[in-house]
Amino acid sequence: MALLFRSFFATAPMRQYFRKADGTPTNGVQGFARHVLSAQSIVRPTHLAVCWDMGVHTFRNELFDGYKANRPAPPDELKPQFDMAREVSEMIGWKNFGTVGMEADDTIGSIIHKWKGEAKITVVSGDKDLLQLLNPSTTIALTKKGYTEYNIYTDQRFKEEYAIEPSLFADVKAFMGDTSDGYPGVKGIGPKTALKLIQSYGSVDGVLQALDELKPAQRSKIQENEDMLKLSLQLARIHTNVPIDAAIDDCTLPIWDRSKFDQLTMEGYSLISRHAQSLMR
């Protein structure tokens, strides 16, 4: 979904929607697929999975009404492309995953948990929250610019930069909050202080058990927002127990041939077809 949004807004300001013959815009869909193909050519995986949000309402909305409530409605030109993106992904032959009530992040986390002993995994996304999923067999490639630039995080790099275990990144987020996702954390505690607290006390629970050791101002802020802190941790923590009803070999890369190129072109996705052919020359 992050790649779909990113691709849509990369061309929408110039009103480059790459419409089909019937007028349906395809800019987000085609950009998404081209991004995945480019990532595939860089990472050179043997298997590939695409994870989707399945609607805007998830268990996190049940926990907190304000979750992502500050996000504007998608533009009309983007709305039809949500279903189209998954259809195109299936047409290409990529294995798709998504569970109603859960976010794509939770599906990604569950795939990592299920197959971390069987594969080296690279996650391509623009979502920094995924850093909490890092482990010795998992790398996070955060999108930077265009289709080919990534900010690569390994388990080792994260530990060197943050001096905490990756799983504790959710505890840091619980203190600092997330304006994009719409939860406040503890008002008055920013990223630097949040990280320092987790470095010093090991977790949200560790900080709460050591309140007497904190400066009066910090202690007061946390005590006043303790319920929201605990709720923010629930919202920030990615679940890794979503059922993944597949074997790893179900994600084997599809075989490209002339019929696949022709089908994409016939369906109005000529940019994807041309991009795929250029990468395979």
Rank of each mutant, 00 (worst) to 15 (best):
S273P: 07
D106R: 01
D53K: 01
E103F: 07
P80E: 01
W94S: 10
T265G: 09
F8W: 12
P216Y: 13
V88Y: 03
P243Q: 04
K230F: 02
D53L: 04
K20R: 12
K114T: 15
N241F: 09
G23W: 12
E118A: 03
A247R: 15
V100K: 08
I244P: 06
G190R: 09
V242W: 04
D76N: 01
P75H: 09
T46M: 10
F32L: 13
L197I: 08
P136R: 01
F97G: 06
H239C: 01
Q40V: 15
G28C: 05
K192E: 10
A49H: 08
Q132D: 09
P243L: 01
E213H: 14
D105F: 03
L231N: 06
H47D: 11
K173H: 04
K79S: 09
H57S: 10
L197R: 06
S137R: 14
R274C: 05
L63K: 14
L131Q: 03
T24A: 07
D205P: 05
A246H: 13
A21E: 13
M102T: 14
D212A: 12
A141W: 00
T122N: 00
F158T: 01
E267W: 11
M176Q: 12
R6K: 02
D105A: 06
P184M: 11
S167L: 14
M84S: 02
A69S: 13
G23N: 04
N70H: 04
M228S: 07
T179V: 05
R34A: 11
K116E: 05
V207S: 04
I198V: 14
R86A: 11
G31I: 06
P25H: 02
N225R: 08
A21V: 07
H47R: 11
Y201L: 06
Q223D: 08
A141D: 00
L142R: 00
L134Y: 01
M176H: 03
E62T: 09
G146N: 06
I112P: 04
F32T: 12
T252R: 12
D262K: 12
R157E: 00
Q156V: 11
T24Q: 06
H47L: 03
E62I: 08
G268K: 11
T143Q: 01
S137I: 05
D83K: 12
I140P: 00
P45G: 02
G98V: 01
M102F: 15
R44S: 13
D155Y: 03
F32Q: 07
F82K: 11
L134Q: 00
T139D: 02
F97H: 08
T99Q: 15
Q218K: 09
D129Q: 09
I255H: 14
S7M: 09
M1C: 08
M54S: 03
Q234D: 13
N70W: 04
K215G: 10
F59H: 14
N135L: 05
T148L: 02
R44Y: 09
T99F: 08
I238T: 06
R237N: 05
T24R: 07
L271M: 15
N27V: 10
S220L: 06
T139C: 00
F32D: 03
D127S: 08
Q223M: 08
Q234I: 09
L253T: 05
P243I: 06
I92E: 02
F169G: 00
L279V: 08
M91R: 15
R19H: 05
R44C: 13
D106I: 00
L168G: 03
K230N: 11
N225H: 15
F64C: 09
A119P: 07
E213Q: 15
G55R: 14
I198W: 05
G146Y: 02
S270A: 12
V204I: 12
D245I: 08
